[in-house]
Design a protein around this nucleic acid. Structure first.
Lengths: 142, 142
DNA sequence: CAGCATCCGAATAGATACTG
DNA sequence: CAGTATCTATTCGGATGCTG
C-alpha cells in the first residue's frame, strides 16, 4: 500500500483530525514543523545536506540564485533550531563544516515524502517525459 | 518500524540521493512541492480543510492573526495550483464552499508526517507535559 | 457572507563590494 | 574559504474600511 493510495490518504485525513483532539496540545504541530523548514532556501540547503554537502561555498554553488547573505542567514537559523551543527576544522587553512544533527537527519522522511508527492502527483512539472515514477518504498500499515 | 527509526531515516537519506540521480529530471521535486505549500498561512488553511472547514469566514475565525486579504490571496493560489476547488452554492443567500481536490487530498500524508515530526522530535514545543507521543501508524518497509 | 481596495510599514531579499 | 557590510528594490503582510 502506497502512501498516496486513496485508502491511506483518507486515513491520514482522519489522523490529522485526531491530532487536534489530543489533550495537552500547546501549539499546532504542523505549524511548528513548517516554522523550521518553511522559509525560502531552507529546504534546498537541507537537500544539499542530505546529499552530503558540508561546505559554505558548495551550498552557494549548488543552489542557484541564493546569495551568500541568505545562505549565511539560513544556516544560522538551522543551527539555532538544532537541525545542523557547525564544526570548525583546524586544518590549514581553517575550514568550516556543517552537518545534520540527529534531529536534522530525522527530517529525511519528510523531505523524501515532499519529493515523492510532486514526482507522483505532478509528473509533468518534474519529468521531461511527463511520466510519473516513484523511487520510494514508503508504505502505510493497512 | 517507524518512519523516525534511525534505520529508516538513513534509508530515506539514500533515497533522496537517488532522486537526484534520476534521468529526465526537470525540476527539484522538493522545491516543487514547497512552492505549493511553503508560503505563510498555506499549511494552516490546508489543516482547516482537512478538518472539514469549507467556508471563508470559518477559515478566518480559526486561523489566528490571518487577515481576510491573506486568506483570499492564499485561497486563490491553492485554486490555481489545483489543490482546492471553489464551489458556489446557489442557496439563499448564496454561499461559497472550498473543497480539497483529489490532488489536494494527497497532501494529507505529508501534513500528517510534518505534524508527526514535531510531536515526536520536539515534544517540549508541542505538548504541555513535554512528553512525546505519536498518533500515527506510518510505517516503512524494511 | 465573502470578499476587494487602499495605504503603509516591515520584512525579505538582491546587488555589489569587501575582509581575515 | 567563509563569510560580513551596505544599500536598495521588492514583496509581504497588517490595518482599516467598504461592497453586493
Amino acid at each position: 500500500m502506497s502512501l498516496f493510495d486513496m485508502q491511506y490518504v483518507e486515513k491520514s485525513q482522519k489522523m490529522i483530525n485526531k491530532v487536534y483532539e489530543m489533550p495537552g496540545l500547546k501549539t499546532c504541530p504542523i505549524e511548528a514543523t513548517f516554522s523550521i523548514i518553511g522559509k525560502r532556501w531552507t529546504v534546498l540547503i537541507l537537500r544539499e545536506m542530505f546529499r552530503g554537502v558540508k561546505q559554505f561555498n558548495r551550498f552557494h554553488e549548488n543552489i542557484e540564485g541564493m546569495t551568500s547573505k541568505m545562505l549565511s542567514l539560513r544556516l544560522r537559523e538551522l543551527e539555532r533550531n538544532k537541525i545542523i551543527s557547525r564544526k570548525i576544522i583546524s586544518d590549514h587553512p581553517v575550514r568550516v563544516e556543517y552537518e545534520l544533527t540527529e534531529l536534522g537527519q530525522k527530517l529525511g522522511p519528510l523531505l523524501l515524502l515532499a519529493a515523492s508527492f510532486s514526482m507522483r502527483q505532478l509528473p509533468k512539472v518534474i519529468f521531461k517525459d511527463g511520466k510519473s515514477r516513484n523511487p520510494m518504498e514508503l508504505t502505510a500499515r493497512s
